[in-house]
Simulated assay, not measured.
Amino acid sequence: MIYAWDNCELDLGRYELRRAGTVQPVEPQVFDVLALLIRERDRVVPKEDLLDAVWGSRFVSESALTSRVKAARRAVGDDGHAQRVIRTVHGRGYQFVGRVIESSPPPRADVPAQPPEQEIRFCKATDGVQLAYATMGSGPPLVKAANWLSHLDYDWHSPVWRHWLYELSARFTLVRYDERGCGLSDWDVPRFSFDAWVDDLETVVDAVGLERFPLLGISQGGPVAIAYAVRHPERVSHLVLLGTYAEGRRKRLSTPEDRELVETRIDLVRLGWGRPDPRYRQLFAAEFLPEGTQDEWQAFDELQRRSASPENAWRFLNEFADIDVSDLAPKVTAPTLILCARHEPDYTFEQSRRLAGMIPGSRLVPLDSPNHLLPARDPAWRQFLAELDRFLPPSRS
């Protein structure tokens, strides 16, 4: 749906606000406030309704709403004095008063009516754990090392991963898998360890029958990809790392308060992950998508629930905290591209910066975003794809 008034357009499908044909950069909450006011323009929208719809169960002050309304007015050429477009009803809320024309955008040629077909198969790790892996797309191979929170079947239906699958499978034969304890792979597993994750990547690559390929590692999939690249330098042609680190949280502690915070975070997963109330899991939505919309947070919460049990979620985080590939990173010989959002929480960018200093000849690309998992509407997502295309050109041998 596209809402047009004066010289402005709010395009819900592309998540864009355009003014005189130029895209106006706005925060997600500003966009959502504007969209809600336009949809409900036949009434005064109470402040409570706006707070609930845009921020959900997150606690924010009324001043946060006031600042977003002010930003929305500024983006569309309005202000609190003129109130030509957004009217304040004191003591009640706000109303959109511009004359709106609704239209549906033409179908985009680059968006498939049906998802690319994927083949889901299973293989067995050396300790008997059954691993689910999938291939989709065509062209040269790209292997994605597994990272926490994936489900081969559900990922396509989730806005967290759907755009990743579409864009990557349009460029490559994408090979991905659910790590042990997650998604369609076995959940009841005897071994939860970093070495087991590297072994599992080996098992999947052998099952697919690949000899040489580029390897993508996102988040904690990055250290796994690094370890595999060192173990099998003859097989990894290129290494791409996004939002990753050399040292898990326990390995980078500097104060007793840091340790207490890390252990409390892990315990919170053990105690709260399985509860129907999503507030405990929203800790991770805020970390992975700090500027996420309410819909994106809900989608991320659903992915968390589907992809892992409370026990396994705790086991994952407990093991992640002890990862350390500082000794392995200098041994990487494959050309390496490292990307990371500049404003990620938990000093992730600093970890990526350190990795760039450890891996010989690697290149660091800062992305202008706070998001750990890049949503489709984030300009950094397009920047990531552009850098990937330059680093892994389709014509490569």
Rank of each mutant, 00 (worst) to 15 (best):
F349E: 06
A225C: 04
R58G: 08
V204D: 03
H157L: 14
Q351Y: 06
R87P: 00
G248F: 03
G243H: 03
V30S: 01
R39N: 09
L131G: 06
S237E: 08
G21M: 09
K144Y: 09
S219M: 04
A356P: 00
R363V: 13
V26D: 02
R250E: 10
V69R: 00
P330Q: 12
A134S: 14
R281N: 01
C8A: 15
P360T: 08
W55S: 02
P141C: 02
L216C: 08
K144F: 10
E119W: 13
R235H: 08
A4W: 01
V204F: 03
G137F: 02
L385C: 10
S362N: 08
W187I: 11
I2M: 12
R265S: 15
Q83W: 01
V129C: 09
N312L: 04
Y245W: 13
C123S: 07
G181C: 06
G77R: 00
V89Q: 12
I38C: 03
S395V: 09
R275E: 15
G183S: 07
K331F: 11
E62Y: 13
D346R: 14
T293W: 00
N312S: 10
A132Y: 02
F391M: 03
E179Q: 15
R180K: 04
Q294A: 15
A225F: 01
P310Y: 06
L149K: 04
V54G: 00
E102K: 07
A134I: 07
L165C: 04
P393D: 06
I2N: 05
I101N: 14
L364Y: 04
R390Q: 12
P276K: 04
A386G: 12
W156E: 11
G272L: 14
A71S: 13
S63L: 13
P233F: 06
D195H: 09
L17F: 04
N7Q: 15
L201P: 00
Q118Y: 08
V60A: 05
L201C: 02
D127W: 05
G272Y: 09
V44W: 00
R92C: 12
D327G: 13
E260H: 11
T126R: 15
S67M: 15
T88N: 09
S185W: 01
R162I: 05
D6P: 05
L268T: 13
V262Q: 10
T66P: 00
G98E: 06
L34N: 01
P112L: 11
Q114W: 12
S193D: 10
T203P: 03
E387F: 03
L355S: 04
F384P: 02
R58E: 14
D42L: 11
W187P: 07
G183A: 07
